[in-house]
């Protein structure tokens, strides 16, 4: 069969990609306090430990607050930028978009450090809000990329047609453009949400004394006793991400089907 060797390689590669994730539930349900082989008995005690952990609960609430806020802010900013880049031509367009997209090629530690210096200099207290500021900054380029694709696949005359049929500029946008880019908006929200939820280094610099999920996990990884619980937490997080991703994929396909595009996996 053609590509047999390649297929075997690809499957091995998938195994490499999934190896750590497959191990997660193994240790999450293992009663041994040391995360190593051989395994002990089956247990769910680590999950109940998760439930009772108040710091963790606080970290979760913080992380969700940050991720939802950053996702919404980044998507709104991304819509402005994507529309500006697809619909208009103006002087300085390249430079402006370049600056907005810069965090994509900037190590996160640089973003975190520079923001930290300025926020401290201005006298802003570090909190959940400062993390939202940083996360919005790094999520916006992803939103812009996703939404630019969504906007540029639209026929320019659709909006004009709506205006021609009697709708105002805003209503033309609301009735025609918005429904058509809705799958893009959903992808942007989900992607930003996931990036923010998982982001460690900026949160580490900007959260002050507030825990977020990644900074909490990072602090616990130093204590061997806490590891099994972290494995349980990881299992929950992985399950949640897969659920979210499946949802995102469902929306994307539905959006594609609705406008009659062929499904090419999001990479035309």
């Amino acid at each position: 069969m053609r590509g047999g060797g390649l297929r075997a390689y690809a499957l091995l590669y998938l195994l490499f990609l999934y190896a750590p994730i497959l191990l997660l539930p193994v240790f999450a349900f293992n009663s041994g306090t040391i995360v190593a082989f051989p395994l002990n008995e089956f247990t769910t005690q680590w999950f109940s430990q998760l439930w009772g952990n108040t710091t963790l609960r606080r970290a979760l609430v913080n992380s969700l607050t940050i991720a939802v806020s950053a996702a919404v802010l980044a998507t709104v900013l991304g819509m402005f930028a994507a529309r500006a880049s697809t619909r208009y031509r103006f002087p300085g367009q390249g430079a402006a978009l370049g600056l907005i997209m810069l965090p994509l090629v900037l190590p996160e530690i640089i973003v975190g450090v520079s923001l930290l210096v300025v926020l401290l200099a201005v006298g802003v207290e570090l909190s959940v809000l400062t993390v939202i500021i940083g996360h919005t900054l790094i999520c916006t380029p992803y939103s812009v990329a996703i939404l630019t694709t969504a906007f540029s696949s639209l026929d320019q005359s659709l909006e004009e047609a709506a205006q021609d049929l009697g709708e105002s500029r805003w209503n033309a946008f609301r009735l025609v453009i918005l429904p058509l880019v809705m799958p893009g908006i959903m992808s942007s929200l989900l992607m930003s949400f996931t990036i923010s939820l998982d982001e460690f280094i900026i949160a580490f610099f900007l959260a002050g004394n507030e825990p977020t999920l990644p900074t909490y996990i990072f602090s616990q990884l130093r204590f061997p006793k806490a590891i099994p619980m972290i494995m349980a937490l990881g299992t929950v997080l992985v399950a949640a991400s897969i659920l979210l991703l499946a949802l995102a994929e469902y929306f994307r396909r539905r959006g594609a089907a609705r406008t009659g595009q062929t499904n090419s996996g999001g990479f035309p």
Binding site: P20, L233, R253
Partner: peptide
Amino acid sequence: KAMWIFLITIPFWTSYLIRVFLWKVILGYN
């Protein structure tokens, strides 16, 4: 293709810290 891309991107969406830590579990002394 869409399914393969989905499969390849899933691990990327799971906690970076935990993934990194799990390599320690894989490569560790025990």
